[in-house]
C-alpha cells in the first residue's frame, strides 16, 4: 500500500501514515503532539517534524521540481503550522492539515511563477547519471535500470501539475482519495480521475522498457 512511501531511498524519514502505524502504542499520535506543542512542548513539535518532514519535502520537491523552491515552500509550510498552532483543532488528520497547507503554498507559488508546466523535465542523461543502479547487475542491466528510472522520473515530471499533485499526495501521505480531494479542493471523483490519468502515463513510461513478454504483466 502507498503508506510505505516514506521508505523511499531507504534513509528517508517515514511517511505520516507509516509513522502512525509504526508508533501505535509507543508514541502519541500527531494530533496529541500538535496539541502538546500548542501548550508549549517543543519536543512534541520535534517529533511531529521528524515524522512528516521527509514526505513533505519529497512532495514539494517533486511537485515543484526545484530544490530551491522546495526549500522555500518547506519553510513556509512549517512556519504556517507553527503560526496556526493556537487555532489547531484535532478535527481532521494532521497529515491532511499539513498537506493542505503545502498544497496551497505550492499553488500560490505556481501562480506567482507562471505555468508550472513551463519548466521542462531534467535531461534524461543527467538524471540517469544520478540514479544508482544495483551493483550486482551487469553494466548493460544497470544502464537499463538507470534508464528506466530516468524515464519514470521524466514521466512523473511531465505529468500535468494537477495529476502529479494527486499522485504525489497519494504516494507520500497514504491518504484516501476523499482526503486528497479535500486537500486539493476538488471532488473525490475528480481526484480519482486525475490519479487514473497519472497512473496511465506512468505505466506507459515503464512499458517502453519492458520486453514484449512482460507487457501483459505490467498492466
Amino acid at each position: 500500500m502507498a503508506v510505505a512511501a516514506g521508505e523511499v531511498g531507504g534513509a528517508a524519514a517515514p511517511s505520516a501514515a507509516g509513522a502512525t502505524v509504526s508508533t501505535i502504542g509507543a508514541a502519541p499520535d500527531d494530533a496529541t503532539l500538535m496539541l502538546r506543542y500548542r501548550k508549549g512542548d517543543v519536543r512534541a513539535f520535534e517529533m511531529l517534524y521528524e515524522r512528516h518532514k521527509g514526505a513533505l519535502y519529497r512532495y514539494l520537491q517533486r511537485l515543484c521540481r526545484s530544490p530551491e523552491v522546495a526549500n522555500d515552500l518547506f519553510q513556509e509550510v512549517w512556519s504556517k503550522v507553527i503560526a496556526s498552532r493556537e487555532r489547531y483543532e484535532a478535527r481532521a488528520k494532521f497529515t491532511t492539515f499539513l498537506f493542505h497547507i503545502a498544497h496551497n503554498c505550492a499553488v500560490d507559488h505556481f501562480r506567482r511563477a507562471g505555468r508550472p508546466q513551463d519548466k521542462g523535465a531534467q535531461d534524461v542523461d543527467a538524471l540517469a547519471g544520478e540514479l544508482p543502479g544495483p551493483s550486482h547487475e551487469s553494466p548493460d542491466a544497470a544502464l537499463s535500470e538507470a534508464q528506466l528510472r530516468a524515464d519514470f522520473k521524466r514521466a512523473l515530471d511531465e505529468l500535468p501539475a494537477e495529476q502529479r499533485d494527486v499522485f504525489l499526495l497519494y504516494e507520500e501521505t497514504g491518504l484516501g482519495l476523499e482526503d486528497i480531494g479535500r486537500i486539493t479542493g476538488v471532488a473525490m471523483e475528480t481526484a480519482k480521475s486525475r490519479l487514473r490519468y497519472a497512473l496511465g502515463k506512468l505505466r506507459g513510461a515503464l512499458r517502453q522498457h519492458q520486453s514484449p513478454t512482460l507487457q501483459s504483466s505490467v498492466s
Partner: peptide
C-alpha cells in the same frame, strides 16, 4: 490496493533529504 509496479518504481526514485 497497493503493491503496483508504478508505486514500486516511485519508491525506487533517489531519496530526497531535507
Amino acid at each position: 490496493k497497493g503493491d503496483s509496479r508504478v508505486s514500486r518504481r516511485y519508491r525506487e526514485l533517489p531519496g530526497v533529504e531535507v
